[in-house]
């Protein structure tokens, strides 16, 4: 197969936003910004262990940011939209790239977390929507009353319901898996790979993902165990 057939027809090439590589760069940058949010949000949430006064003061502080809060929210929403847009267009392309599947197919080099990015992502999305309805707007607040402003009460009451906690823990494990792959993959997507640093980065991604997941999960676990009341 050494002869290349060049047809006389030429088509315009995809630009940055149209190419798979450009879209992956979009995914990496937006994923990184969302990662920064995940870290910040965790640090804020952990104040639940300092008691109601601290946590509610933190909640008030965020709400008093006014315009700034909406700027941050705007950036995050934009990132989510772009991240999901890239997910969708690439997913469709990848599905079409192999119309006939294999009878037998084995994975030889990738981990479970690597291969399930297109599952962990959308489930995290479903979780984020549920989470906003529960703790931000208070639309869904099973088995208790949502008190605007009393963040501490809402957290404790929310997580006292076992299935709310279970769903939260499940979604955060998936987020951890998403980050375990994503945190090093984003460097690769942006063209940064180094024979010595990348293995270290992969290891770091695993530990950061574990720490983040453990940090978030500590809250519902503490509520269920009765340590935070």
């Amino acid at each position: 197969m050494s002869t290349a057939v060049a047809s006389p027809r030429e088509n315009r090439a995809p630009g940055f936003w149209g190419s798979t590589n450009g879209r992956k760069a979009v995914m990496a940058v937006t994923g990184f910004i969302l990662f920064l949010f995940v870290i910040g949000h965790l640090l804020g949430n952990l104040q639940v262990f300092d008691g109601p006064v601290r946590l509610n003061a933190y909640g008030r502080f965020l709400h008093n940011l006014g315009e700034l809060l909406w700027i941050v929210r705007g950036i995050l929403i934009l990132c989510v939209v772009l991240h999901i847009w890239a997910t969708f267009v690439l997913w469709r392309r990848n599905r079409d790239a192999r119309p006939i599947g294999y009878q037998v197919k084995k994975s030889v080099a990738s981990s479970y977390a690597d291969r399930t990015m297109y599952w962990s992502g959308p489930i995290v999305l479903a979780f984020v929507i549920f989470h906003l309805l529960e703790f931000t707007s208070g639309t869904i607040h099973p088995e208790s009353r949502f008190i605007p402003g009393d963040v501490y009460h809402n957290v404790v009451a929310g997580f006292s319901v076992w299935w709310v906690s279970a769903w939260y823990i499940f979604a955060l494990i998936l987020l951890g898996m998403h980050l375990r792959h994503g945190l090093w993959s984003m460097f690769q997507s942006l063209g940064l790979n180094h024979p010595r640093h990348t293995p270290v980065l992969k290891q770091a991604a695993l530990w950061i993902a574990i720490l983040i997941t453990a940090g978030y999960i500590s809250i519902p676990v503490s509520v269920l165990a009765g340590w935070v009341r």
């Binding site: 798979t20 590589n21 981990s111 690597d114 792959h181 993959s185």
Partner: peptide, 12 residues
């Protein structure tokens, strides 16, 4: 891209 190949997810 024009050939229709899929996109890389860096799984190796």
């Amino acid at each position: 891209h024009a050939e229709g190949f899929g996109s890389c997810t860096n799984i190796g």
